[in-house]
Design a protein around this nucleic acid. Structure first.
Lengths: 235, 235
DNA sequence: GTCTGTCTTTTTGTATACATGTTGTATACT
DNA sequence: AGTATACAACATGTATACAAAAAGACAGAC
């Protein structure tokens, strides 16, 4: 069946973009992708259009598809928009979450925890993405979901170095994030709006600080010889 | 040039959906649209994919394209989401609006006023849509814009009867809305965030009340004989 | 009379050939 | 030597033919 290939191409390309295997701004060659996924150009182009609609890639006339870039302008917008949307999504999730969805969410969180204990960076990143995606699905908001998805695309791509810091650091922030996930699940299960929103904002703040550190990292110590692994822990 | 046809098809379909010329839920026949816009199926299908990405239509496997429907579930979500997004967009618009964009916005508002004085309902609806779309463009937020666009699609489609009420009513609410647009422009021009947000929320409230009235209209008077045009003014 | 299974018709999905536009390169001219 | 222009190579956009799937019609069984 060919529509399987199509679905697979869509999912795989999303994954490759989120994992930075396909770098922001990178050009995508239709013919190459056709061969990789066993599709002819027509359905592959439909996949690219879908990805463009979701914000993963950018299409320009006669110039093909490029992986969405993350420039400084969008960064500012990201910080302005993310907490509001995340909080709103959590609020709606509390209202609408079904028992099935909670089960799914807990499963994802289990996989996330396992990835953390295995120190599997790529897996952490992916499961964290899926965690927040699942909460977005709970919110069941056709209006807000597209914004959440776009935020998550860039947030996930920025989070790689955050999770990489878990490898070296002993008391890593990743464990804190993991606990926040648990408390968020509990709040949603108890239908506690204020708790869910508070936990969401705390989770955001943790992430924001880490990203901030990267954008404006601590000055290197004067004694340069001892800094070899210090730069790692900045994450 | 054929890409003109493609662009035209995209714009026209958007317009026809917003004007309710294409009703919510209505099926779209690819072949018919191909003939109407002078395109072959491949590019037309790309147009439909684009429209799906923007939320105008919904695509289902082996079942073609349908104009996005407006059911009760989405209505609730609409009321929950709209004020927050509208306020946030206005806030960002104040921050980012360029002189050129302000000129454009004023032009649209002029056309809107003209449509109001001409009692041209379809034109009012369209210019109002473009007005809020222009503010969305000012906000320059790749994350929030998709949500705004989706909200506007449904808001515009719901607003038809509101503007139709301007035809009969003497002291119509449409004039109030028009003045609110002017004050919003002024607030953006003065870079006054609080003013812009306040005006936006007032504008929303006006609209919300009207939609509410339609969803849950006033009970008809007991003296049924005198109600012939009373139902019109509810609009 | 209604339900169900199969065949026909219609519509959607895919592959491929062809047209059009863009990019890089080589050559000629300033 | 540097720049502009023409041409070639390549990538994207479009049309059309073909394959597959769904919807509808019809006949037969219960």
């Amino acid at each position: 069946m060919k529509s399987d290939n199509k679905q697979r191409a869509l999912t795989q390309l999303q994954r490759r973009i989120l994992s930075l295997d396909l770098a922001p701004g990178q050009a995508l060659d239709e013919v190459v992708l056709c061969q990789q996924y066993g599709l002819s150009r027509t359905p592959l182009r439909e996949v690219l259009q879908r990805l463009a609609g979701q914000g993963y890639v950018q299409l320009t006339m006669h110039r093909g598809a490029h992986v969405s870039s993350m420039d400084m302008v969008t960064m500012r917008n990201f910080f302005q928009t993310a907490p509001m949307v995340y909080a709103a999504i959590s609020r709606l999730a509390v209202e609408h979450a079904s028992a099935d969805q909670l089960v799914t969410l807990k499963k994802i969180q289990m996989r996330f925890r396992r990835a953390v204990s295995n120190a599997a960076v790529a897996d952490m990143v992916e499961q964290n993405h899926r965690f927040h995606e699942a909460i977005g699905e709970m919110a069941a908001s056709p209006y807000l979901s597209p914004s959440l998805e776009r935020l998550l695309i860039d947030h996930t791509r920025m989070s790689h170095r955050f999770y990489r810091s878990a490898l070296s650091g002993a008391n890593s922030q990743v464990d804190v994030a993991c606990d926040q996930h648990d408390r968020l699940i509990a709040a949603i299960e108890k239908r506690c709006v204020s708790g869910a929103v508070a936990e969401t904002l705390a989770h955001w703040e943790l992430s924001r600080v880490e990203i901030d550190k990267y954008v404006q990292p601590d000055a290197l110590p004067f004694d340069v010889l001892e800094t070899a692994d210090a730069s790692e822990s900045v994450g």
